[in-house]
């Protein structure tokens, strides 16, 4: 099979939109609520998940023919947990400020349903190269939703983007107020709901 066959392309492209892990498969919602009050942690979280899901996909794909069926979930979990621990240790050693900012969320990548979902549904039955593309695609798909949600939450909730004030002071003087509700986790859920709505509307039109 060639490197960029139709199948490989699909493995990478479908999770970005038509089969997005968050907005279509409704996976990884919990972390999408937790880290999206501001754009910066959402970005770092998106990157970290992409790295972990891509690497664990490759590892499980390489091991797939040796893994005993009865303990496959445990083996997958061990691989994911080991990778996340290593990523977190490396962040602590080489990017201390980022690791402080993400605090517990890095460890929570282990419990992200997208990882287990991809390992079980894809890596166990596909080759390493396709699994890598699938992992990257799903990671980016997840990151995209996180960034969209975080963009609106930070903009409307604190009037900032990446920590910089973007809403001019004159707006506030004219009576504009930040929407504190945006910073609460339920609003992330509402925003994700809106994204799903928009996406389904577009898909319904295309059909």
């Amino acid at each position: 099979m060639s490197l960029f066959s139709k199948q490989s392309k699909e493995a990478f492209l479908t999770p970005l939109f038509t089969n997005n892990p968050v907005s279509v498969q409704i996976l990884g919602i919990c972390s999408a609520l937790a880290v999206t009050a501001q754009l910066e942690p959402a970005l770092v979280m998106g990157i970290s998940v992409t790295i972990v899901v891509a690497l664990s996909n490759v590892i499980i794909s390489l091991l797939r023919n040796t893994i005993p069926m009865r303990i496959r979930i445990i083996v997958q979990l061990v691989v994911v947990a080991a990778l996340v621990t290593i990523v977190s240790q490396i962040l602590k050693a080489f990017a201390y400020d980022v690791s402080v900012m993400l605090s517990v969320y890095v460890g929570l990548i282990i419990t992200n349903c997208i990882l287990m979902g991809r390992l079980e549904a894809f890596a166990m039955s596909h080759g390493p190269w396709e699994s890598l593309l699938d992992g990257l695609g799903n990671g980016f798909g997840y990151a995209a939703i996180l960034v969209i949600v975080a963009f609106f939450r930070e903009l409307l909730g604190s009037g900032k983007l990446l920590g910089f004030e973007v809403i001019p002071q004159s707006f506030y003087e004219a009576g504009y107020m930040n929407c504190g509700l945006m910073l609460m986790p339920p609003m992330a859920l509402v925003l994700i709901g809106c994204i799903i709505w928009v996406q389904r509307a577009i898909e319904a039109k295309n059909e």
Binding site: N65, T66, I67, P68, M69, R70, I71, I74, V75
Partner: peptide, 11 residues
């Protein structure tokens, strides 16, 4: 790969 011994050794 589904025998008990293999599973235990693998784990």
């Amino acid at each position: 790969t589904n025998s008990n011994v293999y599973t235990i050794v693998y784990a």
